[in-house]
Design a binder for these strands. Sequence first.
DNA 1: TTGTAGGCGTTATCAC
DNA 2: GTGATAACGCCTACAA
Lengths: 352, 352
Amino acid sequence: MRVSIKDIAREAQVSHSTVSRALSDSPLVSAGTKARIQQLAREMGYSPDAQARSLVMGRTRTVGVVVTTITDPFIAEVVQSIENTAYDYGYSVILTSSGSQSKREIAAVEMLQSKRVDGVIVTSSRVGALYQGLLERLEVPIVLINSHRRQASPSTFSVNVDNRHGAYIATKYLIGLQHRRIGYVGGRTHHSDDQERQAGYCEALARANIDFDPQLMVPGNGRASGGERALPHLRVLADPPTAVLCYNDMTAVGLMRAAREMGIVVPDELSVVGFDDIPFASYVMPSLTTLAQPKAEMGRMAMRMVLSLIGDERAENIDKANVVVKGRLIVRESSGVLTHSGAHERAVARNT
Amino acid sequence: MRVSIKDIAREAQVSHSTVSRALSDSPLVSAGTKARIQQLAREMGYSPDAQARSLVMGRTRTVGVVVTTITDPFIAEVVQSIENTAYDYGYSVILTSSGSQSKREIAAVEMLQSKRVDGVIVTSSRVGALYQGLLERLEVPIVLINSHRRQASPSTFSVNVDNRHGAYIATKYLIGLQHRRIGYVGGRTHHSDDQERQAGYCEALARANIDFDPQLMVPGNGRASGGERALPHLRVLADPPTAVLCYNDMTAVGLMRAAREMGIVVPDELSVVGFDDIPFASYVMPSLTTLAQPKAEMGRMAMRMVLSLIGDERAENIDKANVVVKGRLIVRESSGVLTHSGAHERAVARNT
DNA sequence: TTGTAGGCGTTATCAC
DNA sequence: GTGATAACGCCTACAA
């Protein structure tokens, strides 16, 4: 049988309210009985029932985290940071994944509502009108990480990477390496982050007086297969690109795989730059130059923003706003100065 | 204000018990009032309070999942499968990560106990005596995935990959490719899964009448850095290995990176085999031959085993046991038949 | 300093 | 069929 404060009360010959006070370290209990009760509670293996407490307190100290899939390495890092931060503040995390299916999005929101979470964090989703409406009906703070949404709302805030800036920096870097024919392989079209990255890419070209060539911009899908399929479209051009910026690292990885199969040497013949800096970016070969998103920081900020919106004093100095954080370029091996040497010479040279 | 069954009762001019019955679709309510109440509940935006319900029902329909870190791609896949299965059965998941710190392990168990989870799944942890004792005090079913534990206990079951068999298969495969000098780069020493994989490796050698050479077995740490550091130790040997089995994929990836830096061509000069089949195994270059663990199946089994142990009728046909599942070898590019050709010829040949 | 009583939102057991 | 009433485990006025 599970032991409750009543059981302790009986054992200690006091009322259950005294036990409750003693266990919450209230000053309204004599030091003696307090110590005695706390000791007893330990001995009896008492564990407070969070549900009963929440029922009367009106707070669960629980947040819901909604992801598309936790197997996405970017999302996993963000979630890890959310969980760590939640732990620091005495909160726990209910994890739900939607697989981008609206049926599961709906189920997730309903379940989080029934569980009476104090706040919700949504990561990397396209938040449709229906979904957003659902979320807002929860009447708890909502923080969206890298998620596009229709419109602002009083209780919904966001933490986003500066997509435009990131793509701008990355493209500018490639231009600095003398590249003039720079491709862009996108994510899913109509996703706002893809569009923003496109915009940053175009802006960098424009500032360097490089004509934008729509042929150099091909769509992907945010996964490796997108990059893999994109490369042939670029190589078939009369004047193919010498460098490619990819929507994200997985796209870049797929593109590099295609390059290898086509016998194109990266970075000698083609520079490749990704976006995200997933852990694997440094382990692919060649290792991937990429625009790193501050994933841990974003998770931490989102969690603290939720706390702040809930009214937790410990996080009151946190911005309650739509925060935009800047990424930074991490230069690795997949990018290099434009050269005119062929692959063959290079490969031989490397092995002598 | 949040709407409760009392609010609906007032509005519908019935007692709150009738509302409760109507909403749970009890046959003890007339079809008319039932429909009326359900309609009203929808209009008023009613959401049942899971905590209040759990309080009286004695079940939360929630399971706790304890991981070391969700950023481990193997763990992420397992957790995703757990979450999917939980969703299928109407359960939700509380995620906690311990970072292998006993302080956080303790906190996690306490929190899960307070939250009154119906069961717990622990992934890829070394479950120390203290930790296991703590878990068992929860008095709920516990299922360990790939986690070593001291001893059996009535409510604690496990789902494990057959480490010995997996390493045996992988090593046998390399022997079949004519390799005779085969190295093994371990995980953290004293982890039982590492020891079991070692045993499988040794067994395969023994059956092929290949002498076991302790010099060919070097420790790692389960991460890329372990593989990276291990390779030099192997190459410095008088008779270095022509193939290496690694404790896991990350170790293999690190080892391949070291190989590249040392100018060793995989698989021409060195065959590399991993263990796990993390998603990236197929994207590293060369792609990694590895022993795949059935991650989705393991997550699903663990979750269903919990349900079965809880007494959920829908999962009653599930084994309540210490299940061992077999992995299967996935041959990719990082392994090949032993040859005596040098790197130079090969590399040139490839680029012509 | 301690005890009594009420209530949080449910479900369940009785009567009627 | 429906409605009181109690109970789940906890917190918190209010009373003593």
